[in-house]
Amino acid sequence: MNIFRLAGDMTHLASVLVLLLKIHTIKSCAGISLKTQELFAIVFASRYLDIFTDFISLYNTLMKLIFLGSSFSIVWYIRRHKLVRRSYDKDQDTFRHYFLLLPCFILALLINEKFTFKEVMWTFSLYLEAVAILPQLVLLQRTKNIDNLTGQYVFLLGAYRGLYILNWIYRYFTEPHYVHWIPWISGLVQTLLYADFFYYYFESWKNNKKLQLPA
């Protein structure tokens, strides 16, 4: 494992912790898109089908358990927790996320490295993860006061994707036969979706102003 990959995993982990901190201690999910969280839960459930069949490393298994457990508990919190669900911006979070599922699944059936159940589900999870942030970005645009934790959460998610690209570049030059067009292109699309957010995030940071995205 290289430093980019580790840093990417750690920022991903940090993003989840920031979100759980906000939900668990402040009992608020204001500014957080349930649609995006549901898509992430589906992403991990379909990607980690190999968790009990293929052992890679203790690190790998533990991280998979963390991402599965955290994504489903976040969805549970927003839907079921008495206080947290009250802070959910239901009227603003209107992205039709179900419409992303079918196109991603069809694309995974058509474009994959191997036509097996596990491989198609894995590819589906890549395509879905690439677009899963869209409801969250739309909600951010509609939010007048983006609180710091929400801004940091999205920033850390974007940083995680950027670091994974550096990890792929590093692996490409250090490992033989390391070519994976499907995750690379979907990962690139995923990272580009954060570009606009990053721009305004750094602007607000530079000018010491509150983060706000233009509608």
């Binding site: 995993d9 991280m63 994974y164 490992e175 036969h177 995750p183």
Partner: peptide
């Protein structure tokens, strides 16, 4: 390395 060993990533 095998051509498809990306599964060690998360």
């Amino acid at each position: 390395a095998e051509p498809s060993d990306l599964k060690d990533e998360l």
